[in-house]
Design a protein around this nucleic acid. Structure first.
Lengths: 342, 342
DNA sequence: ATGAAAGCGCTAACAA
DNA sequence: TTGTTAGCGCTTTCAT
């Protein structure tokens, strides 16, 4: 046991040279039908399988993509992970996972580790990245795509939904719904998604001559959100919001739970709640959350496309900035304005 | 750009041999303080980072673990993935992900791919594996641990929760609760978890002199569960179950949604619902699902421990079969029997 | 189309 | 402790 079958062994059995074996297993290479047959036969008999790592050492291509993700508690990520992994697998790449949660703040360290695995490219999902790190990766010839995070830096490729536009619709929707006291629960302030969603939301309100009534920070996480809700609602009746926009579905669902089951409020009769992501859970009947849809399939498609392009034709590839339009999905957690269309 | 910095380059700059550089970056090796300093200096100046893949080729250890997971829609998996990845990262290993969903049934193909990456070990999470495949892996010297799946085959290591025992408590709990018509929604029939949970559940009922009133198969998936619920409840009133045990939380939550929002039934007044997993979502206030807890942290600990042991000391390692006890977590989705303790 | 030979970047004896 | 020397399993010229 533990017998590694090498190309050399296959070559001997097939009565050809080791390089012939290599060619048979190399997509672009040429070999006569007879050689191919002999080699394949010997290979299956021996249980041979090319060593991807050895190939990587000599070719400089590992066919591995480093994927950096934060916590998984947000239901948006599993979905993203599954789709990204599938899309990459379809292109013959595989995903090496790095959890950023552990090394909070020390993305630098994580990047070092990733690079030591000689990945062909890196996808950073919902992780903020300092510009110099990105530049270092690119300098090493390892392309990076930011997924669900934008970066002002020009040299970087990123793919997001249209956070500003999506949130702007929410602002208009709530304003048109005749709400008086509209609150916002912010995500982590360091995130571009948070920044853009808040800006879009405020813009949408402003268009209707309204403005934010109150605001608290939930940081996109469980605990922070619980605290944020309490902050907003632990006030005299006339100061309680009658509508809340949370910067992510994950936070919005927590808001709904607390409002209904701890504060005894009805949704949407007493308070309208809107989220952002359209995570699978948002559609569950218990919530039926009105939200902004991130079109994950398109985002993944763009991300994989951009990344593979930079890998395969590095010289001709320019940084891409993609913001996919993000429609408001009207369900039942927020009052629908009279005559509202689309 | 794209300049790969090699140990050779560092060696030249530091004025030492290439193997000296290698030793400085090899944990166990010895080098004089002076050499270490010179090398580290040159390395940082050049931005050198050891090539893990080249190291893997010669050492035979890639420090990568192949993780095979099915669909991510079940909220149990993201949690598992995060913890597994973190635990492995702490031990200096990294996770190469393989989604089994794509190649349904063709686990064989997936395994081939994994092995070609020379992973040091494989974790199959909630994936059934035919014995010969596992044996082939072991024969190649690649240890396999089944996570959340048991296999009768003796040579395999697996880690599960005590599915039989956990489900047995559910049977006793529902019986003691005075339910008359107790239904069961099964997971995928090929899964050991499904088999053991059903057996345990029936055993628990039998102890109380009861038996299953009705049963449908949800396959652990969204669609199947919706169909299963309809099957069980689309009957004359006297044939409708007054309690349902679903083989996973994911299915149980769907059951709750349909019962409440499509059939207008109250939980637990009209129907008690119990799940299995204690996925994070189960505790959400909208559901407050009574369920059996899989102690993920312990399961992960055992899995990683067993795997690393087989990797590091293959000869002295015997297959391990671990079934972690799984307590019933009583929340509000099922009627609590009078005087029920623990 | 094929084999010989020269590496890819690294580790691991082996001498010194 | 160090440098020298073989490889690890593979791809890729280069002749043939």
């Amino acid at each position: 046991m533990g017998e590694r079958v090498t190309a050399q062994m296959v070559a001997e059995r097939a009565g050809v040279s080791q390089s012939a074996v290599s060619r048979v297993f190399t997509p672009g290479a040429s070999a006569s039908l007879k050689t191919v047959e002999k080699v394949r036969k010997a290979a299956t008999e021996l249980g041979y399988r090319p060593n991807v790592l050895a190939r990587a050492v000599v070719s400089g291509r590992s066919r591995m993509i480093g994927l950096v993700v934060p916590y998984m508690e947000n239901h948006f990520f599993p979905d993203v992970l599954e789709r990204l992994s599938n899309a990459l697998q379809d292109e013959g790449y595989h995903v090496l996972i790095f959890m950023a949660s552990r090394t909070l703040g020390d993305i630098d360290q994580v990047l070092e580790e990733i690079l030591s695995y000689q990945v062909d490219g890196i996808i950073m999902a919902s992780v903020a990245m300092s510009s110099d790190i990105a530049l270092r990766c690119q300098a090493q010839g390892v392309p990076v795509v930011l997924f669900n995070r934008a970066q002002d830096l020009d040299g970087l490729t990123w793919v997001t939904s249209d956070n500003f536009g999506g949130a702007r619709q929410v602002g208009r929707f709530l304003a048109a719904g005749g709400h008086d006291r509209i609150g916002y629960i912010a995500g982590w302030e360091g995130a571009s998604t948070q920044r853009d969603r808040e800006a879009g939301f405020r813009a949408g309100l402003a268009e209707a001559g309204r403005e934010l009534f109150c605001r608290a920070v939930g940081n996109f996480r469980n605990e922070g959100t619980v605290r944020a809700v309490r902050t907003l609602f632990d006030v005299p009746p006339e100061r309680k919001p009658d509508a809340v926009f949370a910067a992510s579905d994950h936070m919005a669902l927590i808001v709904m739970d607390i409002l209904r089951y701890e504060l005894g409020l009805r949704i949407p009769e007493d308070v309208s709640v809107i989220g952002y992501d359209d995570a699978p859970t948002a559609a569950w009947l218990s919530y039926s959350l009105t939200t902004v849809r991130q079109r994950v399939n398109l985002m993944v498609e763009e991300t994989v496309g951009a990344l593979l392009e930079s890998i395969e034709t590095p010289q001709t590839t320019k940084p891409r900035h993609v913001a996919i339009d993000s429609p408001l999905i009207v369900r039942k957690s927020a009052r629908v304005p009279k005559g509202w269309t689309t």
